[in-house]
């Protein structure tokens, strides 16, 4: 097990390193230098280059860049909000995005589980059909279509929730975005729970439990659900990726001041520095989540824990 964790950890660190290298290389190829001002004399430029370490060899610059990135010193924004440190821009935005993402995951997991359980227990009935239809639609229709539909009906026509995000009512404003983001999670978790539960329900040990007189909620909760839920961890990683891309669009639609909409603005206004920092943050989050999911799965599933190699070998 320790060897497995160590191996996953090394791969993750390696990937993160590759990402930083990629971002740094891209920065070198960006047009212009930070000191493109014609008024600067050659001597002043030398002084400035020395001050910011731009006269050093590329390797030293890269080392400094890595250290700064890991310490959270991301440099300044050029166009979105001039000369503001990016870490300051992020400070207010990250919590908002995390909150909406978190609510979406919770809501999605809860409703998805309930739908999946209903569909599996009353397998082959109307409830099953309804749950299947919901999950097919949820998987295939992009989240921004839901976002637009919700924004139009509940935000504009009925006026139940704010159409655009307001700082005054952060919770009410986050309801519609969370729901539209959670649709994909609901659908995939419902689908997965249903098929896993059906598999467990048809197994020999459930037959044994039933013949020993266990039935009803006790059978479902203690014997079926417990075994069916283990593989659900595997769907977590793709779901979180879906949330990350989904957040870009949903934050744009509801004009939420989160990191998704910041990335969109940064791309559209060519603020390279911000784009690169956000790419780094997204990659780091993604790599971190993949690592946690891999390790969790190893902890829970003894077949992986006991084998010397990882699940992917």
């Amino acid at each position: 097990m320790r060897r497995y964790v160590l191996k996953r950890l090394l791969i993750s660190i390696g990937t993160l390193f590759v990402v930083i290298l990629l971002l740094f290389t891209l920065l070198q190829f960006m047009p212009g230098s930070p000191f493109n001002d014609e008024k600067l004399s050659a001597d002043q430029k030398v002084v400035l280059f020395e001050k910011y370490g731009l006269d050093k060899p590329v390797v030293v610059q890269f080392y400094k860049y890595v250290v700064n990135m890991l310490q959270g010193d991301f440099g300044v924004s050029y166009t979105i909000s001039k000369n503001t440190p990016i870490s300051q821009l992020l400070k207010t935005r990250v919590p908002i995005s995390l909150r909406i993402g978190g609510q979406a995951v919770l809501l999605g997991a809860l409703i998805g589980l309930i739908l999946g359980i209903i569909a599996a227990i009353w397998h082959g009935t109307v409830w099953d059909t309804i749950a299947t239809i919901v999950s097919v639609i949820g998987v295939s229709v992009p989240s921004y279509v839901f976002a637009l539909a919700l924004a139009y009906t509940f935000g504009y026509e009925l006026n139940w929730f704010p159409l655009l995000y307001t700082m005054k009512a952060p919770f009410q404003s986050s309801v519609l975005p969370s729901i539209s983001l959670s649709m994909f999670t609901i659908a995939s978790i419902a689908r997965f729970t249903r098929s896993e539960m059906l598999e467990v329900l048809g197994s020999d040990y459930i037959l044994l439990a039933e013949s020993k007189g266990v039935y009803g909620p006790k059978l479902i909760v203690r014997h079926v659900l417990r075994n069916a839920l283990i593989p659900i961890i595997t769907v977590l990683a793709p779901l979180i990726v879906g949330l990350m891309t989904g957040s870009l669009v949903v934050e744009k639609i509801f004009s939420i001041p989160g990191i998704g909409s910041l990335l969109v603005t940064a791309i559209q206004s060519n603020d390279y520095n911000v784009v690169i920092v956000l790419s780094f943050i997204y990659s780091a989050m993604y790599i971190g989540i993949m690592l946690v999911v891999d390790i969790l799965y190893g902890v829970i599933d003894p077949r992986i824990r006991l084998s010397k190699e990882g699940p992917n070998d």
């Binding site: 891309t245 791309i267 993604y286």
Partner: peptide, 23 residues
């Protein structure tokens, strides 16, 4: 081949596309 695929797979598609669009 698998290590290479693993590294590409660990970078979110979103990030790869964004960076491509910058160049």
């Amino acid at each position: 081949l698998q290590r290479f695929a693993e590294i590409i797979n660990s970078i979110p598609t979103l990030v790869i596309v964004t960076l491509l669009m910058l160049i």
